[in-house]
Design a protein around this nucleic acid. Structure first.
Length: 182
DNA sequence: TAGGCCATCTGGTCCT
DNA sequence: AGGACCAGATGGCCTA
């Protein structure tokens, strides 16, 4: 599994909601754009879940058009939502230090690394402050207690990351493997 | 060529 | 009611 420094991949251009059916890409058939149902819909229809959308009878043109229009608008919103999600992933990537800039982390790598980084930071801060956050009198001991409880719970479940140094170990191992490019 | 990763479409469900 | 969210399906791109 390698996701190394890929150039930006050419993607099928987003469907323009204002575009005419003739401008649609041939490999991404749209709802109502042809006799062949969209790829993602075929299995659903095979299970009988898409029957309503397709309709057993021919619908009036205007009603069909409004249905198609709603679907296209919904697709556009979903694209925007996913773009926002990807922007958040990118921001998270940039917040994780010690990773080669030319090596783009996959989403799952980003989440895993971020989790271990946070945990290692938490353990480090607690160790350095002896359970008392700098500048805070109250929450420190409580935070430390909570953290210890979490660790104890993890240990009870047989988690390998029960020890604070375990997080740092994991994080270091991951960083090392990413640097190696493996 | 197989496997990993990703973008996109889609219908169902949840939320406001 | 309409939008947000979610998960399944599909196909493209890339690397080993």
């Amino acid at each position: 599994m390698k996701t190394k420094n890929r150039p930006p991949r050419r993607r099928v251009p987003p469907q323009d909601t204002a575009a005419s059916p003739g401008e649609q890409t041939p490999d991404r058939p749209q709802l109502g754009s042809g006799p062949e149902p969209p790829k993602g819909l075929r299995s659903r229809m095979a299970r009988g879940q898409g029957a309503r959308a397709e309709g057993g009878r021919r619908r009036q043109g205007s009603r069909r058009e409004s249905t198609v229009q709603r679907r296209l608008e919904s697709n556009e919103r979903e694209r925007q939502r996913m773009h926002k999600l990807n922007n958040a992933f990118q921001a998270l990537r940039e917040a994780i230090p010690h990773v080669r800039a030319d090596r783009k982390l996959s989403k799952i790598e980003t989440l895993t690394l971020a989790k271990n980084y946070i945990k290692s930071l938490t353990a480090t801060i607690l160790a350095m402050s002896s359970g008392r956050l700098p500048g805070l009198d109250g929450p420190g001991p409580k935070l430390y207690q909570h953290y210890q409880q979490q660790q104890a719970a993890g240990a009870a479940l047989g988690a390998t990351e029960a020890q604070p140094e375990g997080h740092l170990q994991k994080y270091s191992t991951q960083i090392h493997s990413f640097r190696e490019g493996s």
